[in-house]
Design a protein around this nucleic acid. Structure first.
Lengths: 325, 325
DNA sequence: CCCGATCCCGGGAACGGTCTCGGAAAAATA
DNA sequence: TATTTTTCCGAGACCGTTCCCGGGATCGGG
């Protein structure tokens, strides 16, 4: 329309300097008048990058991941990047499909928190081979060389367990995730070492490996309550599970925390509003996500960066459900 | 490598018929051997479509939207489409930015649930002009001609209110969303008509317009409790708000439901586990999302479809918090 | 044996931009 | 005035596909 070549138009729109100010103005004016929008697809194809980061999380129904995704999106926003979110629904094959779809969408990098089913890392190895930056958070692999953001699982599980011990509890049950998940194991070790440190007997029957879904809570609660030596404290896998366990125990006439002290995980809002208020581990989900995104963006921009491991500190929040005295 | 033109390769990979089976096999074999992945960017550019649907929701921290997004993703998955999720964080300008970014990503269609701040629809009107299919769910506009999926807000608010009336409550407070949101108004009207039907006085001081965030709950709870004629029932905006309100009222020595009956909204899992268990409105989030996605996909595939309005029924779940007798 | 139909396949434009390169005009310098 | 430098712009290749079109080979019918 202006009798100007597309090269010049491209220069104007990209805001480059080798163009006459007057020509630039004419182009920009006409562009805004026509409501011209550059075709991102074409740009991405030419540039061989999409300016978007892919995310695979187990499920955003889980508030921890919803908050982490929030952190990722905020960080991406600040960097002018887009985010593509996939849910594995805690399924290994769905996770694999997600990965494939993100790769075929040519995302510039991927952030992953693996599903409970996932017990091998080969599908991610091929990513690093292809030079696609990869960052894991919270649920990570030990053996893969990739950047990761985790919390101090071991220490906080130890701290939580010691807190219960200090309240006088001697038979502390521990509900954690699947054994093959690194952070489940780390938490378990923290729990075990706390018991040993205080010369308490470790009983395997007090240890429950569950997945993070809610449909097994009733089952393992009944199991724990029917044990010959009923636990006098429970360190739960998350707050919702803790809440349901408390509900079941109350129905069975048990008092919380006098008969059974309970410690949750994630420090959801509801902890403050239930009765008794729920002690929990504050897990800085938003920060974890933001940190992972920050690392990934660095990897994307500087392809020679070495893998890095960041540890973000959780903290113990003590409320009524674990205050025995 | 095979001495075959790219046209033929394209034919083989696209699975078209005008190709010799033997040639096709050779190509497919080599492709899988080389782990060849077609470049989606190029395909999208050529086809002028991306096979992805964009979603804008207020925030996935809100479990209603997390579940709705789950429904959308499931439906998209079945149709072989991708999903791009954006969060407006209940902000009008963020929503506008999301919309812009989705459009520049050239999504084939968009599903929206508007933010609390959004009180005009012009930014969406331009979408329909450009022929991009658009479906609203839950939080919708009345005035815009577009497909939408909503629940029977009016009827269910009426039913909930009548339930409270039948329990003998006479001073029923109603907490709902901003006035400019259609479903807030629909719910309010259901509430008002229920009162009128049973010849109860409508008092404006019992009606609270809030947003869906949690940080105002304490404020309006105190307001309601300090009213000269304290309400004897509260119909809350969602379950988390109801939980917090119950917590505050208990601290003030009020008994639930004898002194104040409480009815929540969304029927979260926790409703069953709190004390007293929480009556609520079951809001079929997953179905709403799935239904919206189904409609959008239809619109994408058959561009001549007329806008359609679907209503999905919520249901009243009565538990202890509203059973007075 | 000839001719039209059918079956495969290759050439090349197109999608909508970016970017390199070269060259003309204008400005600066000799 | 002649030469060099700078400023600005256009031509055209390119990203990786799809798809239209045209043409050669094979086949069948008359």
């Amino acid at each position: 329309m202006l009798g100007i070549s597309k090269s010049t138009v491209s220069r104007a729109l990209a805001g480059r300097s080798d163009i006459h100010p007057e020509t630039k103005k004419k182009i920009l004016d006409l562009a805004s008048q026509l409501q011209y929008e550059p075709n991102t697809l074409a740009i991405n194809l030419k540039q061989q990058k999409t300016n978007t980061i892919g995310v695979i999380v187990p499920e955003t129904i889980n508030r921890f991941f919803a908050r982490a995704v929030g952190g990722i999106q905020k960080q991406a926003d600040m960097a002018g990047m887009n985010v593509m979110i996939c849910q594995s629904n805690e399924s290994y094959i769905a996770e694999k499909k997600n990965l494939h779809s993100l790769m075929s969408s040519r995302v510039d990098g991927i952030i992953v928190s693996i599903s409970t089913e996932t017990d091998r890392s080969d599908q991610f190895a091929s990513l690093t081979e292809k030079g696609i930056p990869l960052v894991f958070f919270d649920r990570v692999f030990e053996d893969i060389v990739a950047s990761q953001v985790v919390t101090n699982n071991y220490e906080i599980a130890m701290e939580g367990t010691e807190h219960l011990i200090q309240q006088g509890c001697k038979r502390i049950a521990f509900v954690t995730g699947p054994e093959h998940l690194f952070n489940s194991r780390a938490r378990l070790n923290g729990y075990l070492d706390a018991l040993r440190k205080h010369n308490l007997q470790v009983k395997d029957s007090y240890i429950v490996h569950s997945h993070y879904r809610s449909d097994k809570v009733e089952e393992y609660t009944r199991y724990l309550l029917n044990l010959p030596q009923r636990p006098d404290a429970i360190f739960a896998i998350n707050d919702y599970a803790a809440l349901e366990m408390i509900h079941i125990m109350k129905k069975n006439g048990l008092r919380i925390p006098q008969d059974v002290a309970v410690l949750g995980f994630n420090n959801e809002n509801l902890c403050r509003f239930v009765e008794p208020s729920l002690s929990s581990i504050d897990h800085p989900a938003h920060d974890i996500g933001a940190s992972a995104a920050e690392m990934l963006i660095n990897h994307i921009r500087h392809h020679d960066m070495k893998p890095e491991k960041r540890i973000i500190k959780s903290s113990l929040i003590i409320r009524e459900s674990s205050r025995v005295q």
